[in-house]
């Protein structure tokens, strides 16, 4: 589905990503973990074509990124989603959720939209301005919007930052349900203790990919080992 080959990215002469290779298969739940500034968001931005890496190749559904056209197959929830919303914005949740269909020129399945609203507890808020939402509601609205065109892959960049413990738990339960229904998920986080048991692959990134393998293998490591991943290279690959 998604394949990254020897990807390197530099900014102002500074190395951000070095020689990253990874593969995401259909049905995977991949958690990309790593310290702040470790290049997690940069990797996602490369995958989504927002920035161009100086080296390496990215293949989406077998096509090279520059030739890929079916972007509606990828749902994306950015880091700090909605935090900079202009408070004057009179955009209702209905308008917000319909926008992807208009941008990607796809039909919106209204029944599926209703289903999503129920799952995320947003049904009552459909005609309300999204600027009046709490942070948790806004976060759920962004995830619902990322799923509205029934994508095959959902990419979430630090989605649970700022949510309280109960909301985080509910959030990961919802994600697990979608994963069980066949959705491929790529989750970027630095909160390793939050990794749900649904996660089947882990990639540990700090400029370089220090670990990439199955979640069970990742769980073997102690906190000390984990700290080691952040600072030293540990050769451990289990794709």
């Amino acid at each position: 589905m998604i394949q990254v080959e020897n990807l390197s990215f530099f900014q102002n002469g500074k190395k951000i990503l070095e020689d990253i290779s990874l593969k995401v298969e259909k049905g995977d739940f991949l958690a990309i973990i790593g310290p702040n500034g470790g290049g997690k968001t940069t990797l996602i931005k490369c995958l989504l074509g927002f920035i161009k890496p100086q080296k390496g190749k990215i293949y989406l559904w077998g096509k090279e990124l520059s030739n890929f056209k079916d972007w509606h197959l990828i749902g994306y929830v950015p880091q700090r989603a909605g935090k900079d919303l202009n408070p004057m914005f009179p955009l209702t949740l209905r308008e917000f959720l319909h926008l992807p269909a208009l941008l990607y020129k796809k039909n919106l399945d209204e029944n599926y939209l209703k289903e999503l609203l129920e799952i995320f507890g947003l049904t009552e808020l459909l005609e309300r301005r999204i600027t009046s939402f709490s942070f948790g509601q806004l976060q759920r609205a962004y995830i619902a919007r990322a799923l509205v065109l029934k994508p095959e892959v959902l990419i979430l960049d630090e989605p649970s930052v700022g949510l309280d413990f109960i909301s985080q738990k509910n959030f990961y339960e919802i994600l697990s349900n979608f994963h069980q229904k066949g959705l491929t998920i790529i989750l970027v986080t630095h909160e390793t203790w939050l990794l749900t048991k649904e996660v089947n692959k882990v990639a540990c990134l700090n400029q370089r990919l220090y670990f990439h393998g199955a979640h069970e293998d990742f769980c073997i490591f102690s906190e000390k080992d984990l700290a080691g991943f952040y600072f030293h290279k540990i050769e451990h690959t289990h794709w």
Partner: peptide, 16 residues
């Protein structure tokens, strides 16, 4: 209009 609207609250969208 849809792109202008999206740009009003979104910095980046895949493929857009």
């Amino acid at each position: 209009k849809n792109l202008w609207l999206a740009k009003s609250f979104e910095e980046e969208l895949p493929g857009i």
